[in-house]
Amino acid sequence: MSENLNDLRAFLRVAEAGSFTKAAGQMGVSQSALSHTIKALEERIGIKLLNRTTRSVSTTQAGEQLLNDIAPLISDIEQKLSALNEFRDSPRGTLRINGTEHVIHSILWDRLSRFALDYPDIHLEITTDYTLTDIVKDRYDIGIRLGHTVDQDMIAVRVTPDMQMMVVASAEYVRIHGKPETPADLDNHRCLALRLPTHENLMNWELQKSGSGEQQEIVHYHPQPVMIFSHAHLLVKAATDSLGIAWVPTAMVRKDLQSGKLIPLLSEWLTSYDGYYLYYPHRRQSSPLFRLLVDALKLK
């Protein structure tokens, strides 16, 4: 029996996404067309591959076996086809990238923009979120995250220097409410916070006092915010509009600091983290598209 590779790819997408709606969106087809494709595949082979309910889709035992068998094979075929780009005058294909809003917008955008101009036949799909997305499961080609969050079995390439976090507010806010002199003073101020979707909790502020000693003082501050946001750029906008104090990446507010829209607070309490890394599975490293993007984004 000869099966259409596109039908098997459609089954793979639905099985991995656990949803016809999500898989259809990824593939750019209608949900009804995708459902018809899977139903026809099941009828041809005479085996039920998916259990369907009104809320979810899961693989049957036979479907799970097929998924495990064909996923690496289809991935290998796609990589082999992608490698043929080396024989084209202009590389082409699609790269799906997942990263945080901060690193895409504030740090890497100029490099991504230049890459898109240099290689117009390479289509970029960029998704920003703050979850620790499984790029293999969700079929992203590349992830960009802070170094300590990257899985050890991934190839990782550093794309930014260390990330520094700082406390900021507008001059107008300070004029009205005064400056906090110590982390404890934050309890008397209007704090702005970011909600992390992974565990639905608020991001705590890790304030590290500068100094040369080995035992540096670190305060883990749990803000009681007057406003909560799901994206960092709204957090910064609220701070520039004098709505409160925010703890943000220095790179994100550098222009606002230079223009005077924001001023640094608790300047002795700056915290640094390992920088951002571009990462991807080992099987992707031979792809010419990956090599082009890695060379464009890596830290020079």
Rank of each mutant, 00 (worst) to 15 (best):
S75Y: 14
S75N: 13
S75G: 15
S75I: 07
D76P: 03
D76H: 10
I77D: 04
I77P: 04
E78Q: 15
E78T: 03
E78F: 13
E78H: 10
E78A: 15
Q79S: 11
Q79M: 14
Q79Y: 11
Q79I: 15
Q79G: 12
Q79D: 09
Q79E: 07
K80N: 07
K80S: 12
K80Y: 13
K80T: 10
K80D: 05
K80I: 11
K80C: 10
L81M: 15
L81K: 07
L81Y: 12
L81E: 10
L81C: 09
L81I: 12
L81D: 06
S82Y: 07
S82V: 06
S82A: 15
S82T: 10
S82E: 10
S82R: 10
S82M: 04
A83E: 14
A83T: 08
A83M: 08
A83V: 07
A83S: 14
L84I: 05
L84F: 10
L84N: 09
N85G: 14
N85Q: 07
N85T: 04
N85D: 14
N85K: 08
E86M: 09
E86I: 12
E86W: 01
E86A: 12
E86D: 12
E86G: 09
E86P: 01
F87Y: 10
F87T: 03
F87E: 13
F87A: 07
F87G: 00
F87K: 13
R88D: 04
R88G: 01
R88F: 14
D89T: 13
D89L: 14
D89Q: 08
S90H: 08
S90L: 08
S90M: 09
S90T: 07
P91M: 12
P91T: 03
P91R: 05
P91K: 04
P91S: 05
R92A: 15
R92E: 10
R92L: 10
R92Y: 08
G93Q: 04
T94S: 11
L95G: 02
L95T: 00
L95H: 01
L95N: 00
I97C: 01
I97G: 02
I97S: 00
I97V: 13
N98A: 13
N98K: 02
N98R: 06
N98Q: 07
G99C: 03
G99R: 01
G99F: 13
G99S: 12
T100G: 14
T100L: 00
T100S: 15
T100N: 06
E101S: 11
E101R: 15
E101V: 06
E101Y: 13
E101W: 08
E101T: 07
H102I: 13
H102A: 12
H102D: 02
H102P: 01
V103Q: 00
V103K: 01
V103Y: 02
V103R: 06
V103N: 03
V103G: 03
I104N: 06
I104V: 13
I104G: 02
I104S: 02
I104C: 06
I104D: 08
I104H: 06
I104K: 00
